[in-house]
């Protein structure tokens, strides 16, 4: 599949996130939320379903918060113990749209590329220094290794007749201690190995960005979202 370049998608996501905060309310914020939801949610639905659960929880939290601090204006809903006023709905709509924009833009970026593509792209196209790119690449590579270690501890606990779901601090410690010790041991030998291969004098490879059709489409979307205050003053 032809994809936009990582640097441009990164800049797009960063700008959309900033726009979510710059457009404080009104049509502009709703349009930005809609564009990014349409862009990110279908892409991220398969891979990152938990983000939708978090989004629902966050909006519920915003509702409770608004009841506490923004319950002003005309009464909209009245129950025997609580009156919900228009201020609550306005606050939930405003912050909800902001959260949808941020989550949509992030889902678009992380669903489009593998972590390896992201790190390589950021280093080669955006000139990310190696003190950021190497630990990030190593950390992301470590994720499946940590999952494997976790499963090994789980199997060992099962064989000894202990519960596999860590509930008490001692359970958590019995999982974390071997995993962290192993990770640090691995990091030590990885560090020695990369030094022996001349990592210290390695210079990051830079590539020139060549724009294709998906890049132009992304630039168009970005310009459209940036010009919303002119379209809807």
């Amino acid at each position: 599949m032809n994809k936009p370049c990582v640097a441009l998608a990164f800049l797009y996501t960063l700008t959309a996130t900033v726009l979510a905060f710059l457009y404080r309310s009104g049509t502009s914020l709703l349009v930005v939320a809609l564009v990014n939801a349409l862009l990110g949610f279908p892409l991220g639905f398969k891979r990152c379903r938990f983000v939708f659960l978090l989004l629902l929880l966050a909006i519920w939290g915003v509702f409770l918060n608004s009841l506490l601090v923004a319950n002003t204006g005309e009464a909209v809903l009245q129950t025997w113990f609580l009156t919900i006023r228009s201020g609550v709905f306005e606050a939930v709509a405003r912050i909800g749209a902001r959260l949808i924009t941020i989550a949509g833009a992030a889902l678009f970026f992380v669903s489009l590329y593998t972590p390896r593509e992201i790190v390589k792209g950021l280093e080669a196209e955006l000139m990310l220094p190696k003190i950021i790119s190497f630990p990030l690449a190593y950390g992301l590579r470590l994720l499946p290794v940590l999952a494997k270690d976790w499963n090994e501890v789980k199997t060992s606990r099962k064989q000894r007749g202990y519960r596999t779901v860590p509930l008490t601090p001692s359970d958590i410690a019995s999982y974390l201690q071997p995993i962290l010790s192993l990770s640090i041991e691995r990091a030590l030998w990885t560090g020695i190995a990369i030094e022996l291969r001349g990592f210290h004098s390695r210079r990051p490879r830079r590539v020139e960005i060549r724009l294709s059709l998906p890049d132009y489409l992304l630039v168009f979307l970005l310009v459209f979202q940036l010009s919303l205050p002119i379209l809807y003053p």
């Binding site: 003190i131 630990p135 190593y138 950390g139 962290l180 640090i184 990091a187 560090g191 990369i194 030094e195």
Partner: peptide
């Protein structure tokens, strides 16, 4: 400051990054 970092420090930063990220 960054030049003083060794390969082991870089790798340890990677471990911290993934643990902190989780």
């Amino acid at each position: 400051l960054v030049a003083g970092y060794t390969g082991v420090d870089y790798a340890l930063l990677g471990v911290v990054a993934v643990v902190a990220g989780i």
